[in-house]
């Protein structure tokens, strides 16, 4: 269980210049095994929020309680899938996937088992000995995902992980992620600016407003049954919820004009 309590965050200013505020008084609860998407205009602090959940940034005020304890540092139980390509180019696919287990001192036997399992899960069987430079962008994301999954975190934090992929690959990765999540029941916090992606993936969507509009967070429950396939994107109900989300996102736009 993730409880975000009265959270504020400001970036510090450089050399005496005033910093700027990104998040103000945010309250949010994310339950275990939930798939939550955070969506919002650029600059609304959604990536910053994810960094705080991971422990890379510390809140300026308020706190984040994770399973009863305040988050103070980075921990492998909260794994991050980065927006950029984070696969280590100097390690072969197998060694990349094994990395977390190895640095944590998991015995070799167990490591091998996990690595094989998750390489297969993400559909990279046969590429174990490839160098990352030999893989496409989509395949590298799979390696990244397998590396995180093999490390067996409780929560996976994803920062627009499919943002750099082409539409086809993206859809395929979304479908696979949903399948993996349905099979493993982990908590996933997924930041995106793609409404369809959020609707297809999430149990609930958090629409985060820009701080200049108050920075409020509104939650939309996504009503679609699981297991889901991409077909639901054609469902009229899907389009209706989509419409509502768009309107919520654009709530403040007219006032700006």
């Amino acid at each position: 269980m993730l409880k975000i309590e009265n959270l504020s965050f400001s970036y510090e200013g450089n050399k005496g210049k005033p910093g700027y505020e990104v998040i103000r008084n945010l309250e949010l609860t994310i339950g275990d095994n939930e798939f939550v998407c955070i969506i919002g205009p650029s600059g609304c602090g959604k990536s910053t929020l994810l960094k705080m959940l991971a422990g890379f940034e510390k809140p300026s005020e308020g706190k984040i309680i994770y399973n009863g304890q305040e988050i103070k540092s980075v921990g492998y139980e909260r794994a991050m899938v980065f927006q950029e390509d984070a696969v280590f180019p100097w390690l072969r696919v197998r060694d990349n996937v094994e990395y977390g287990l190895k640095v944590r001192g998991v015995p070799a036997e167990t490591r091998k088992e996990h690595v094989n399992k998750f390489i297969e899960t993400v559909g990279l069987k046969g590429f174990e000995n490839a160098w990352p430079k030999e893989l496409s962008g989509g395949m590298k994301k799979r390696v990244d995902l397998a590396r995180v999954l093999a490390n067996n975190p409780e929560t996976i934090l994803m920062d627009e992980p499919f943002g750099a992929l082409d539409a086809m690959t993206k859809e395929m990765m979304q479908e696979e992620l949903v399948k993996i999540w349905e099979g493993s029941k982990k908590t996933i916090v997924f930041v995106t600016h793609d409404i369809e992606e959020a609707l297809f993936l999430a149990d609930k969507i958090v629409v985060l407003q820009h701080i200049k509009n108050g920075g409020e967070a509104e939650v939309i429950e996504v009503p679609f049954e699981r297991p889901r396939t991409v077909k639901i994107k054609e469902n009229p109900e899907f389009q209706k919820v989509r419409r509502r989300t768009v309107e919520l996102l654009k709530k403040y736009e007219r006032e700006e004009e």
Binding site: Y76, F82, A86
Partner: peptide, 23 residues
């Protein structure tokens, strides 16, 4: 991102240096 990924997967600073920075 490489340094963050390493810490995030459970590496300590000295391990991160050996497995990320050196290569």
């Amino acid at each position: 991102v490489y340094i963050n990924a390493s810490y995030n997967l459970g590496a300590k600073k000295s391990v991160m240096f050996k497995t990320v920075i050196c290569p």
